[in-house]
Every structure is written in C-alpha cells, then in structure tokens.
Design a protein around this nucleic acid. Structure first.
Length: 495
RNA sequence: GCCCCCAUCGUCUAGUGGUCUAGGACGCCGCCCUUUCAAGGCGGUAACACGGGUUCGAACCCCGUUGGGGGUACCA
C-alpha cells in the first residue's frame, strides 16, 4: 500500500474554449491538492488529432495561469513523469496495448458499428445495447479473413464477469452490474489509442491518488476500473488504484447542461466581461461546495484551508450570472486601492481607451478616477463607461442619447447657465470649491432639488446619468473642458 | 429499452434523527440615505417533490413513485 501524499490531476482535452465546468474541476482538484499539501498534476489529453488544437491548448494554460491555479507537474513546468502531453506518449500506450493483447486481456475486433447493429436487430434486440462482444471468439482464420479484406481491427478490453463497485468520495458506493457494459474500444483501427486506455494508464503511471472529475464521466468509471485491473495483471503500477470523486454538473440557464457552444460557458467570456480571478474563483467554488453556513465571500487561501472533498455536493448546480457578478463586485471592493488602480489602467488600455503606453497625465488621471469608482462597479468592463469621459477630447465627447434626453433640453437651461457662471467665477477649481459654489447657487439661491440641479450637470460633464461623483469628476476633467461641455449641453440638441 | 447519478426558497446552499414554526447568500419587493436609474443601510417575499415505512421523534435512515440529468462512440 502506497502511503505517499495526495496526487491529483487535471487532464482536459484541448478542444474548443475552456469552459466554466472545466475550470470548476480544475479549481477543486487544485484546492484538494493544496489543502492536503499534495501535488497538482496538469496533463493534456490530446489523443484525438481530429478535434484537438494548439489554440485550445494554449488557452488552457493561459486560463489556469490567469486564475493562479499553478501546477506542480505538467506542460512547461516538467516533472518526473514527462512528457505531460499524451500526444507525446504514444509509444507508451502502444506498448501497453500490445501487452494487454498478448496477455489475452484485450482482443482484436473487426466488427463495424453497422454490423453490430445488424446483429442486434437480427436477434430482436435494441441496437442501443451497443457492442455485443462478438469478436471475442474470433478464430485466427476469421481474423486472417478480415485482414485479407483490408480491415484493420480495433482493440477492445474484455470486461470482467463480476460487478464493479466504486466507492465515490462524493456519492458513496456505486455498483455497476456485470454484463451491463460491453467490451470497449481502447485503440482505434488506425492504431491511435483512445481515452479509455490512455487516461487510466497515465493515472497509474503518474501515481495519481485521487480522481476528481465531472459527473459526466461517472458512467465510464467501471471501464476505467476494469482497465486498472488489467494493468495490474500485466504488472503496470503497484496495484494501488486512485479513489474517485465525481463532481456535480455545472448547468446553464434553464435545465440544460452548460454547452460548450454557449458563449456564457466560456471562461474567456467572463474574463472579457471583467471578472477578476478572485471573484470568479470564489463564485465557482460555491458551485457544489460551501465554506460555512453564512459566509459566501472568501479568499482562495481560505478555501484551500477549509476544502474537504467529503463536503462537496452531489447535485448539479446552475450558473447564476447575477450572483457571480455580486460576488465579483465584493472582491473588487476588497482590492487594495493601488491594486485596483493598476487593474483599472490595464483595463483601459485593454479597451483601447488609453494607449498602450499612457502619458503621465493619463496615468495619473486614471488612477485618481479609479479611486472614485472602485465601489461602484461589479465588473472591470464597466470601468471604460464610467471614466471614459475623462479620456476623450471635448470635440469627440458625446452625450449618451438616453441620458441627454432625460436631463438636458429646455428645463435644464437655467441650471447650466447658472453653473457656468459660478464655475467661471471660481478662484480655484477644486472638488470642495466646486461643490460649495454649485450648492449655494443651485440649491440655496435657486432653491432647486438636488436631483433637478445636478442631473443636467452630470450628463453635461460625463455624458451619462450614472457616473463617478460629480464634483470630483469635474475637478479631474479640468475647468476648461467642464465649461466647454456645459456650453455644448446648453445648446443641446443643436450642438 | 438497459445501466448510472440527482432531488431544501426562483438560483447557489446550511442542515448528517430532537436546538428547524428550516439558517445564509444572490435575485426580487419596500423603506432609508443620497450629488447619480450607482453604491450603502434596514426590512420583507420565498423551500424540505410525492407516497409508504423505520423510530418516542424524520429535511435528515430505508423502499417506491414522479421529475430532471448522464451513459449506452474507433469523443473526452
């Protein structure tokens, strides 16, 4: 019995965009490894040349790095079981397959899917029953016959005759009756190994102790266990099998599984939306797990400390964008101001609002503005619309149509005129002096309600009804721009 | 068809036989605050799928029903 520490793996196949279910799985594996002081192995299961892509591979690494889910062994990091891309381990699988064949645990199968279906129908059975183990009893003559027809056999593993039970960390004992699962393909006709072979082989070779994966793989578990036994029989591994834990599905809206094709299933979508890793990870951790009775907001460190696989839920979870955003906004607020300032600048550059190398003035202005909006946004994508007015010339500046319609026009003229006069007369142009002057003129002298007084000014200066605090915004913008924009607002809609 | 998984507020969940007339969060609704249709504060709405057992006692244990999901690939 091996007594070594926990070794878990995250082993996606590089097809398409990394999606939220995948990342949740990565997170739980990572947290489990960290909690137990174990090893987090990252392995790429790229044995389907028709579907795998380099882009997807790179997106996978990029996503994990962005989230901070660092791996101890894997691509670009290395480790004692290199290589970690299965496409580079083909000789290993070929060798194992040959040994299984030689040991009589696997056999060559020439049946086409069509032939299997025919036989099922001919026997009055439902073709959905799948493969019928027909080729188990093929004689050498039969095989020669097929070969002479130019057929290339697949390799199938023989399923054992007894029931297979799995003690699942999340679901308890699960029993699969014998005979309910046909012999399955482990090597394609063209010689390429399949997941059914390479996944268990690598788990054994890499001495994985715990397999934490999505519920979608639950039904392939008995095949996996059968493979472990076969591998043990031919002397691969030390006879210790990994323990399974099947994590619940992450569903989309309604009752459907979050499909890879839905844009909102892609992690890239959330990143682009302006989720920060802290917030997204916190939300994802809540899909099937919880820290305590009444805490929803916590750090990765806190999660690692508390993460117990036995406390993972078995029931599927729906991804709720609203809650995800709410949690993200809390994390944004918890960021140290300097940290948030940097992320604001980065985001403005990313959005093309600031140039790749902002001037000193732009940088300082953005950092000042950041302090005004940290508590007002839930997503980084809102940064641009909140402070964009500061980085556009007066000529290019424009009013948001809806906001202008509501706040500008005839009734606002008196306010705008009075404000302009007051601002022009100011000896110095600071938040405090602006506020004093405007309040005294608009609220006290003209006896306007704050809303009536400040809404037009807000739209005039920032272009929108929702903005950073007004007086601070004015100071940041500078007097001449403020006056220019108010006068344009005064002439709205004829600018 | 067969096999497997799942079942607490709209959603994510707490709850592992009595402290549950079921707790928290998001959402939603209302009120307050206010320079903003933002943020913040306060309050409210809302759930143990159903039926049988077991037990002095069941959201918690067992069985069944219903409902949902997955598998039954030369995908992973």
């Amino acid at each position: 019995m091996r007594t070594s520490a926990v070794r878990v793996r995250f082993c996606p196949s590089p097809t398409g965009n990394p999606h939220v279910g995948l990342v949740r799985t990565a997170l739980f594996n990572w947290a489990f490894a960290r909690h137990h002081g174990g090893t987090f192995v990252f392995r790429i299961e790229d044995t389907d040349s028709a579907r795998d892509s380099q882009d997807s591979y790179e997106a996978l690494l990029d996503t994990l790095r962005w989230l901070g889910l660092n791996w101890d062994e894997g691509p670009e990091v290395g480790g004692p079981h290199e290589p970690y891309r299965q496409s580079q381990r083909l000789e290993i699988y070929h060798d194992v397959a040959q040994r299984l064949l030689a040991a009589g645990l696997a056999y060559e199968s020439f049946s086409t899917p069509e032939e299997v279906e025919e036989r099922r129908k001919a026997n009055g059975q439902d073709p959905k029953l799948g493969y019928d183990n027909f080729d188990r009893t093929l004689t050498n003559e039969d095989k020669e016959q097929f070969r002479s027809q130019g057929r290339n056999p697949v390799l199938r593993l023989m399923m054992p005759t007894e029931d297979i039970t799995v003690d699942d960390l999340v679901r308890g004992e699960i029993r699969f009756p014998h005979g309910s699962i046909p012999d399955f393909v482990i090597v394609r006709g063209n010689g390429e190994p399949l997941y059914t072979l390479v996944n268990p082989v690598d788990d054994i070779l890499m001495q994985i102790t715990h397999v934490l994966r999505g519920e979608d793989l639950l039904s392939s578990t008995p095949r996996q266990v059968a493979m472990y036994k076969a591998l043990e029989a031919i002397g691969i591994g030390d006879g210790v099998q990994p323990t399974f834990g099947h994590l619940p599905y992450v569903m989309g809206q309604g009752n459907k599984k979050l499909s890879k094709r839905d844009p909102e299933s892609s992690i890239g979508f959330y990143r682009e939306q302006g989720f920060i890793p802290e917030g997204l990870l916190n939300y994802l951790s809540l899909l099937g797990w919880s820290l305590s009775e009444d805490e929803d907001i916590f750090s990765l460190d806190e999660m690692v400390k508390a993460f117990e696989i036995s406390r993972v839920n078995a029931n599927p979870a729906r991804f709720d964008l609203k809650k995800a955003e709410a949690i993200n906004s809390t994390h944004i607020r918890q960021l140290a101001p300097a940290d948030f300032q940097q992320r604001t600048v980065d985001r403005l550059i990313h959005d093309g609002i600031l140039p790749a190398s902002p001037s000193r003035e732009q940088d300082e202005c953005a950092r000042s503005a950041a302090l005004l909006i940290q508590e007002r946004i839930g997503l980084l994508s809102e940064v641009g619309s909140m402070v964009g007015f500061l980085f556009v010339s007066d000529a290019e500046f424009d009013f948001d149509a809806g906001s202008a319609k509501k706040a500008l026009g005839e009734p606002s003229h008196a306010v705008l005129d009075a404000a302009m006069q007051a601002i022009e007369a100011l000896p110095d142009f600071t938040t405090a002096s602006i506020e004093d002057a405007l309040r005294s003129v608009l609220l006290e002298k003209m006896e306007l309600k704050p809303k009536t007084a400040f809404a037009p000014l807000r739209v005039a200066v920032t272009g929108q009804l929702v903005s950073p605090p007004l007086f601070e915004s004015m100071e940041l913008l500078g007097r001449s721009s403020v006056l220019h924009r108010i006068s344009r607002a005064r002439n709205f809609p004829d600018q």
